[in-house]
Amino acid sequence: MPTKAGSLELLSQWGGNLLVGALSTIQISLWAYAFGLCLGLLGAVGKLNGGRVARGILDGYTTIVRSVPELVLIVILYYAGTDTLNRVLAHFGFDAVRISGFMAAVFVLAFVQGAYSTEVLRGAIQAIPIGQIEAARAFGMAPVLRFRRIILPAMLPYAIPGLANLWLNVTKDSALVAVVGYSELALATRQAAGGTKAYFLFYVVAAGIYLTISIVSLFFFGRLERRFRRGQHKAR
């Protein structure tokens, strides 16, 4: 264990690496979150309005993702996902694509996020008072317009707490891609700790960085929720 001056020195040497790792974590998380939301929106609409086959597939997707540990899913998808994709492409006569570690990490996390987003958004859409949607229909709004002008704004207040939770989850889950070797904050920390033998110091610092990300995000989502709740009845 280094002395106090030693700790500061180590941090000033390796701090840059950790910050690059932290940026990488945020980058992966943002992309995965965005793709996950798109998947989730499709999933929620499919579950609510889709035919029996679509509903069956979506139920299978959400059930499996929610009962298999993220770590297992990430390892499977990380190795098998790109392999399968390349085989499918080869089958249709395309060249193999090279999927960078970054993209693989993003898509794997997005796949997991998508299942949870599906449930959050489905719940939020169902929470909209049915009268509002019926009124929109009575005014002759087309489905797309109805979705854009009525369902989306009306569901957001119900969805935001769940979506905030999902964002916190994806920032934490992104640490799991360290296990498959993509360099983000957790792996950068592991490398720094291994290189300097100051395991305690660097893991505490990494935990501090993750905590900062979480707290800043919570603050941001709090403001967002207040924005979208304006005009709604105050709860209690």
Binding site: R98, S100, F102, M103, G181, G194, G195
Partner: peptide
């Protein structure tokens, strides 16, 4: 993040991300 990954095709040498001094490790 994506832009940095979209380059021509060099040979990709895979190195274990876990430090293995003195053969492969990351410096400060």
């Amino acid at each position: 993040g994506f832009a940095a990954n979209a380059q021509a095709e060099p040979i990709k040498f895979g190195v274990a991300a876990e430090p293995y001094p003195p053969f492969t490790s990351k410096d400060a």
